[in-house]
């Protein structure tokens, strides 16, 4: 789906331009920090972010060339991973805290008020430490996020007869182009050749942790919904239900 003239450098700049703006919660975090208040703020924020995520995906070169159902499926599979990757990126300079938005950050202890959160919090904080350790660069970060989107249903797509036959090869070609862009970004650092490809491996290995935490988070959110602890907003509810449906 990519125009052949799009070099790795151009592709990265297009993906950088697609980055969503900073999203503010825009109201004081409801105090005291009770389970209901924290969940209310986080789901409110997630719902706002999801709207921007759709615009982001549409600006990834090649994405809108996919069929509408394919676009839906990709986003439904990856949305929490993309939200979590953004959260880790925002939190990278704040050890021990998660910066959900410029006006909402929570320490590990504050997150504990939500039942079942501490495990997910710890995994997010640990993954963020790894990002810090790797000194992830902005260009690398945007490539990884695009890869999460394009790779999200790679292991589901072949089992579904309804997909158009060229869809998978289109997806693979686009994923290759983003991989070239990531390799280009790593090469810019001037690292010795061997360290460039070990860095590529380390960056891609981050994604398996992100997938893992996202699955944990999805189960948690589903649980909160079932227990009626928090009212879910329309888009967030739709995305959660779709995910639960795909995975069952």
């Amino acid at each position: 789906p990519l125009p052949p003239a799009l070099t790795p450098e151009h592709l990265i700049s297009r993906i950088m331009e697609a980055e969503p703006p900073e999203i503010y919660l825009m109201k004081d975090m409801n105090r005291p920090l009770t389970e209901a208040n924290v969940m209310m703020s986080l789901t409110n924020l997630a719902d706002k972010e999801l709207v921007h995520m759709i615009s982001w995906a549409k600006k990834i070169p090649g994405f809108v060339e996919f069929g509408l159902l394919e676009q839906v499926h990709l986003l439904e599979c990856c949305w929490l991973e993309v939200l979590m990757m953004g959260l880790m990126w925002r939190s990278v300079d704040h050890p021990g805290k998660l910066i959900f938005s410029p006006d909402l950050s929570l320490s590990r202890e504050e997150g504990n008020c939500v039942q079942g959160f501490s495990e997910i919090f710890d995994m997010l904080i640990a993954a963020t430490s790894r990002v810090r350790e790797l000194k992830l660069q902005r260009e690398e970060y945007v490539c990884l996020k695009a890869m999460i989107l394009l790779n999200s249903n790679m292991c589901l797509i072949s089992s579904e007869g309804s997909e158009e036959p060229q869809s998978r090869s289109k997806l693979l070609r686009l994923l290759d182009a983003v991989t070239d862009a990531l390799v280009w970004a790593i090469a810019k650092s001037g690292l010795p050749y061997r360290q460039q490809y070990t860095r590529l491996a380390h960056l891609l290995m981050l994604l398996s942790h992100v997938r893992h935490v996202s699955n944990k988070g999805m189960d948690h959110l589903h649980c909160m919904k079932m227990k009626n602890i928090v009212p879910l907003y329309d888009l967030l509810l739709e995305m959660l239900d779709a995910h639960i449906m795909h995975s069952s």
Binding site: S55, V72, E76, E238, M239
Partner: peptide, 13 residues
């Protein structure tokens, strides 16, 4: 996925 479809098919401003 009504809302998602709606956002995907909206033309950028």
């Amino acid at each position: 996925h009504t809302k998602l479809l709606q956002l995907l098919t909206t033309k950028p401003e």
